[in-house]
Design a binder for these strands. Structure first.
Lengths: 218, 218
DNA sequence: CGGCCTCTCCCCCGTCCGGCGGAGGCGGAT
DNA sequence: ATCCGCCTCCGCCGGACGGGGGAGAGGCCG
């Protein structure tokens, strides 16, 4: 039962052309079968629930429910969930990391050639230990921790205040910051005060912590 | 020229049995050919330089030169380097991340079954856009940044000093730390002073920065 | 033109911080 | 038995920091 003769695939992508192309490529292989398609995340969930495919090729950006939440819902509600491969156009699409964290086993670029696609599908259909084991989940989680959504206060900082905060996060004193920015110490104090107010912190140490937590540094 | 009829593979692993097993599996496929073997990292470099394979299956832990440095050397010295796949026993072997950062295109678990292995080799032999593009390099780099080797000073901190540093990295004042640790403020000051000395920082803000950079927090 | 924001700088003041030197107790190592 | 490291505290001092004001100059936008 773990090795079906043919790999049953569902395609989830809001663009018909993409689905058609994928279907054409996969259907040419005797051991692969496209059993269903979905144009939205919600549709993907219901189609998968009904058809129980082995592999789902899931676009990340889709109307109604995006690929990430669709992935979550599929994995959460099915006993033997399919292997979900995220399909994306850009390598560093940050959604990809969310999808991996949600449980997708891998990701695939839309510009991949037909052979790569076919082999990827075969691969994920059965491999349980190849390229995307727990380690990828770890990586994706780390990525999320390393690049959280910037808090609201970041947008409120003026340019000068950002500069000052960066220097604070470098361990500079007000006097040093003043020298580096070629302004008076009093000016730096003003900016620091503004930073503290906007970050909701009470001293420079807490502000620097906030900067680190927000990924403001780097 | 980008699509050789047969994929030429070099095996680099210090255990003969592993090489034999890999060779047996790969040789059963008509389109795969094991053209060479190496038992050390240094040997791997010279063998690869001589034979110019399409794919290298590289063990991370090898005598003389490990898989990471062998990977680096191969990628640095060849014009059209082979695709290097790191072979490892444990998913979260931290060397794996080093290898990915060094330019390996993927990694493979030794407990992968024969089919997965074969397909992985075929896959990496040609795919230039599948599962391990630049994004993986990014991930690996992030991993390295997120888990650097702890600086020497970490080991030098006493238990109490670590506690104090954690509270500092939480934005607490000396008085607050004193209350939480149920000691006098003077005691906290002593510990803070020790932390500053051992971390080579001059004030609590810099110490907190050092703690963050060292991954002391989390 | 008249706000509004930003950037610049000034004052005072109380608090916190870090550097200095010292001290006592306690437990492990030699 | 002695020494050393760790933890606990003390006082003193100067400097840095943060809060509270205010104020002038320039730019942007309705």
């Amino acid at each position: 039962m773990t090795r079906p003769a043919t790999v049953r695939v569902v395609l989830a992508d809001d663009e018909r052309m993409v689905r058609t192309a994928l279907r054409a490529i996969l259907s040419a292989e005797p051991d692969l079968e496209v059993v269903g398609e979905a144009a939205t995340g919600a549709e993907a969930v219901s189609v998968v629930r009904e058809l129980r495919p082995d592999v789902v090729l899931m676009d990340v950006r889709m109307p109604e429910i995006d690929g990430i939440r669709a992935t979550e819902q599929i994995l959460a509600t099915l006993d033997e969930p399919p292997r979900i491969v995220v399909v994306t156009t850009f390598e560093n699409d940050s959604y990809v990391y969310d999808a991996l964290r949600a449980g997708a086993v891998g990701f695939l670029l839309k510009r991949a050639d037909a052979d790569a696609l076919v082999q990827a599908v075969r691969l994920v259909a059965r491999s349980d230990s190849l390229l995307f084991p727990a380690a990828v989940r770890t990586l994706a989680t780390e990525h999320a921790r390393a690049h959280p959504a910037p808090p609201a206060w970041v947008a409120k900082l003026t340019g000068r205040e950002r500069e000052v905060l960066r220097h604070m996060a470098d361990g500079q004193t007000n006097a040093e910051i003043a020298r580096r920015m070629e302004v008076g110490p009093a000016t730096v104090k003003s900016h620091v005060a503004a930073v503290l107010a906007k970050t909701g912190t009470r001293d420079r140490t807490q502000a620097v912590i906030a900067a680190y937590e927000a990924g403001f540094v780097n």
